[in-house]
Design a protein around this nucleic acid. Sequence first.
DNA 1: ATGGCTAAAAGATTTAGA
Length: 281
Amino acid sequence: MRLATWNVNSIRTRVARTVEFAVREDIDVLAMQEIKCKPEQFPYGPFEEAGYHVEAHGLNQWNGVAIASRLPMTDVQTSFAGMPGFAKGHEGPDAPLEARAIGALIDGVRVWSLYVPNGRALDDPHLAYKLHWLDALKKATAAELEADPELPLALVGDFNVIPFDDDNGDPDIVVGRSTHVSPEERAAFFALAEAGVSDVVRPLLPAGYTYWDYQRLKFPRNEGIRIDFILVSKTLADAVTGASIHRDERKGEQPSDHVPVVVDLDFGGGEDDDDLPMIFS
DNA sequence: ATGGCTAAAAGATTTAGA
């Protein structure tokens, strides 16, 4: 299985280059974030013509997540256990959920497309929401892997956290003043490892940004940040055979501000029979 | 001192992104 994650920043604006990428790169499963539309507005046609099923979750013009898959998806969920909501005026357990998670079972693999809340600012209530959200994700993941330690599980998406100083090439993002780099956000991200998932791209690609702000020539200056990740359980981590960050997708007409991240998984699933001997004649 | 781009709504501005 070739698995990709990409914050597309509006699928309606970028459906052509999104599908072109998936086909050109032979992607089996593409997790998308910031589709910025409701399911009934999603441009299913080009995906289906290219051989993909699509499951989408969106409530309005904000956020929104989806998964495109060549193989059928079952057990689709639009939130994980304990996922907190947020709305002006009321936080807490009664707050409405945002469209930031969609999960599906694909060829035995549980895939989650995740869009972690932006903290906005160190003194903004959204930062506490972001930390709660990550903590709930850790607890839900730990529970799922405690129930089945061998479960092939992938948490992929835009985590909105810059884990290490070397992941930050943007001089406007400063530890002590900015979100994404605070010790609290980094701790919440690293805590996901305690649940049993690990970043399988970093060991293969220690350097590389996944996002460059549209403003102030950030891309030409290469002042990017690394915030998009593929975290997987041990069963899948043992199956990784390659990884790539597709920096060129930040170029050209109307790019997303994020680029795709891809891993190759060889876990003996049923999707890839190219190497099987011909038993019929 | 600065949100300097980009996108979506029911706007000719606001809200959001990180």
